[in-house]
Amino acid sequence: MGDALRVGLVGIGNISGQYLETLPRLPGVALVAAADLDPTREVPGVRMMSPEALYAADDVDVVLNLTVPQAHAEVALAAIEAGKHVYGEKPLALSTVEGQSVLAAASAAGVRVGCAPDTVLGTGIQTARRCVDEGVIGTPVAATAFMVTPGHERWHPTPEFYYRPGGGPLFDMGPYYLTALITLLGPVRRVTGLTSTPRAERVIGRGPRAGTAFPVSTPTHVAGTLEHASGALTTLMMSFDVWEANLPRIEVYGTAGSLSVPDPNNFSGEVHVFTPEAAGRPDSAGWTAVAPSAGHRNAGRGIGLADLAESLADGTDHRASGALAYHVLDVMESLLRAAEEGTTQDIASTAERPAPVA
């Protein structure tokens, strides 16, 4: 393993399969241990132990926290107390209070906090960013971001956590969209929004508990407007209440054209640009595909860990950082508060746009 960053995984749930597929091919990292509260869950070929033993293990450098959102802060704090770096699934925590405690503890301990999503490090978002940075669409003035689905209970065997505080479409899928928007347009200065919860309960659609009803305790449709520090305005809609829609994932509108950004839940996807000049050509429909020109190719969930390992070796800042994840958390929490109070909320935090991936 040499000088590889040694990883201890906590939480062998649904999302862990994607990480376990990616980790063996990542440079600079090595999975050495795993833990889960359910003793029947194992990772073949990897040393299994209790979470407490994993935190204390001398051969674990970073804890990969893939637990449910309700446990993110608790696991992160336990790992930090043991002197480990932490890289976790989104969101960073259930609240900014919890998020602040994680970042403060890491600062005091001299360890780093990383957090998904790392999808923004792939070719899709990074190629789109290069288009923005190179002025292909002029100065960005606005953006739209839409994520709509009927709900995760149709496919997930234990979907209850998606419908509790810390879940819902905003906290579940919002981090992908907001991280991409901040990567493209910079931090958010203030927000306003509205929410609704059309159904008080949901019914599990698949698995051994199919047909079981459960209550909903968080908004399932969120609409908002974000003002970026740059002055650009984003219109956002996140919903678990839409069966189908002909909507873009993310589009950015500039003074010289428009940019169509691929699904931020994926690492790749086609970027398209519209410019008046292209639209005026008889052989053009206006939108032109942009060849991938930046970002990690063939990336998968966990590439943020490789970025963290490289940054530790180089003494540079890692891109999927706790500070960025905290700003995203602050924006989401503020949007929900704005909807509840009927106000516009200033965002107390900020974050630097991460360095681009060439």
Rank of each mutant, 00 (worst) to 15 (best):
S239C: 10
F240L: 06
V188K: 00
Y253S: 13
T179E: 09
G231F: 09
P159R: 11
A229I: 08
F161T: 13
A223N: 01
A232M: 12
G186Y: 08
I250H: 11
G166M: 02
L178Y: 06
I204V: 15
W155H: 13
H221E: 14
Y162W: 12
L247D: 09
S196K: 15
T197F: 03
T192Q: 07
G207E: 03
P215R: 09
L178N: 05
W243F: 05
G174I: 02
G257I: 11
L194S: 09
V188Y: 00
T197A: 04
V216P: 07
D241W: 00
G211W: 12
D241M: 04
W243E: 13
T179N: 05
W155D: 13
V216Y: 06
P198I: 04
G231W: 09
P157W: 15
E251I: 03
V242Y: 11
L184D: 07
M237T: 15
A210P: 00
L184T: 07
P169E: 01
T218P: 03
L178M: 13
G205V: 02
E251F: 02
T197K: 06
R164C: 12
G211C: 11
H228S: 09
Y253A: 12
P187A: 04
D241C: 11
A229Q: 15
V191N: 05
S196P: 06
P215Q: 10
G168T: 05
